[in-house]
Amino acid sequence: MNLSAVNPPAIEPSRASAETHAAGTPEKPQTAEPWTQRGGVYWMDCAKVTVRETARAMKDVGARFVTITAYQLPGNEGFRLEYHWDLDGRLLGFPFQLIGNSIESIFDICEAADWIEREVHEGFAIEFTGREYEPLLLREGEKPGVNLREEMAR
């Protein structure tokens, strides 16, 4: 995979902060090709990268993990997870379409992802492989998926 595509290298923290403050809106990361701005987020096409590769690349450039937003897609299309990272005020997004109900955990790379992985697991019954998790929001006797998974929440 091309890590330079994941890594927005040309952003210099001090300059970027000054520019965003002056202009009022974040500037597009200077790796023009893979990034598209939409709905307040700079999105990257993640068809050829894994979630762990993006997490490592974000950690290397000093980005701050923000959250994971999970979506259940219509019919049998499965789920989409959007990973959000902040780089000097720019919100970067990495969408991943799940094959089945599982995706690799990034908890060992980024400890800030711990609670949200547990929450997504409990909300949608999605498995994050390579980690163990204790209950977060669910109480004894409640099954993962009870809160947000369409067929169970109804």
Partner: peptide, 14 residues
């Protein structure tokens, strides 16, 4: 030193 009011200003913070 992070503060969204500075790094990504919204409303009239700029």
């Amino acid at each position: 030193a992070q503060d969204l009011r500075r790094a990504a200003p919204y409303a009239a913070y700029a």
